[in-house]
Nucleic acid binder design. Structure first.
Length: 309
RNA sequence: GCCGAGGUAGCUCAGUUGGUAGAGCACAGGACUGAAAAUCCUGGUGUCGGCGGUUCGAGUCCGCCCCUCGGCA
């Protein structure tokens, strides 16, 4: 480990209140916020991604938000690199890095290990994608039976990725994953926020209504001009549904209903994914004020520091 | 009080001539390593309002009771 002192990681489902806690915490302990959000990275996706609002970003520096054009691609290893850089800069200023996020894979790259395989090759990927899944599956079973066992026959994205790695290196992805484990050089004290599901779902529904009142549809309309369905930013909850509405494929009411439903399903997946993250200090924020949550977080951090001292 | 209509899953409802129940929505469990707000898999969750009767067998037929909604008073 590169650092004797760990950074802070705040994780949890969408709409649980991570951003507010991060800023409150940053103000108390002289920290800076690093976003771990695969959609907040994009400019022009503002309302629908629930980026921390200006009044929070004025109080504390935020990193990895609004720095990429939505037509561009980004990936977890670039994220890893960018976080590393941000942490080093923040530390050089004598501040505490506070990573905050909900993007599951992005969290994993910081807390676990990753394999140092090849990055995505757009051309090869396009070629593979154009083939029927059944055929790709057969090929995967032939070249990497171990991966085929883990990847569901219908999961085209993982099938394509596995074949891509094999094509590029001649080594099956399963072997890469087994033999190449690169850790992240910094440790984190992990704070997880959780909330009664019912309450969270109501909060999500209300937040979507608020986004719409703030002009989500207009933002989507403008964005639609420059995005194509192949771009990751196109597949963002709150936008993709409105794109379908603007194309006349679904009604307005249906689009709104789907935005809420998809956000709830997303939150559920985050619950499930984060559940297995080890060593998380969980705080149930149900019925608690920001001050109470902050106090609990500070207590946990104090405890953690004295334990490791 | 009388006359209608109705009480079945969390909600809205379907349920043939009696064979211990199923759709939509909602929801739940899970997978996941360079697209992750992505991608994929699995699951019906039930005193059929209650009590009794007929029957080998009742959500279904009969009786009584309870509740809800209309209409008339």
């Amino acid at each position: 480990m590169k650092s004797e002192q760990s950074s802070i990681l705040i994780l949890g489902p969408t709409a649980v209140g991570k951003s507010e806690l991060a800023v409150a915490l940053a103000q108390r302990i002289a920290g800076e916020v690093i976003s771990a959000d695969a959609r907040a990275i994009y400019r022009d996706l503002t309302i629908g991604t629930a980026k921390p609002p200006a009044h929070l970003r004025e109080r504390v520096p935020h990193h990895l938000i609004d720095f990429l054009d939505p037509t561009e691609r980004y990936d977890v290893m670039r994220f890893r690199h960018d976080v590393l850089k941000a942490i080093e800069e923040i530390r050089a200023r004598g501040k505490m890095p506070i990573v905050v996020g909900g993007s599951t894979l992005y969290i994993s790259v910081l807390t676990g290990t990753f394999f140092a395989g090849p990055k995505a090759d757009p051309q090869l990927r396009r070629r593979l994608e154009s083939q029927p899944q059944e055929q790709l599956r057969q090929r995967l079973e032939a070249v990497d039976p171990e991966a085929a066992q883990r990847i569901h026959p219908n999961d085209k994205i993982r099938t394509v990725r596995a074949l891509e790695v094999y094509e590029l290196t001649g080594v099956p992805i399963s072997r890469w994953q087994r033999e190449s484990k690169v850790p992240f050089p910094y440790r984190f004290t992990k704070i997880g926020l959780t909330l009664n599901r019912r309450v969270l779902y109501e909060r999500i529904n209300a937040r979507v209504d608020r986004m719409i009142a703030q002009g989500l549809l207009e933002e989507a309309k403008a964005l639609k001009e420059k995005l194509t369905p192949q771009m990751p930013a196109y597949r963002t909850i709150g936008y993709e549904e409105f794109f379908a509405y603007l194309d006349g494929k679904i009604s307005y009411d249906e689009a709104v209903r789907l935005i809420k439903k998809h956000t709830r399903e997303y939150a559920r997946r985050q619950f499930i994914y984060f559940k297995r993250e080890p060593d998380v200090h969980w705080i149930d924020v149900t019925g608690k004020s920001l001050e109470e949550v902050l106090d609990e977080a500070l207590r946990l951090l104090g405890q953690h520091l004295s334990e490791s001292a």
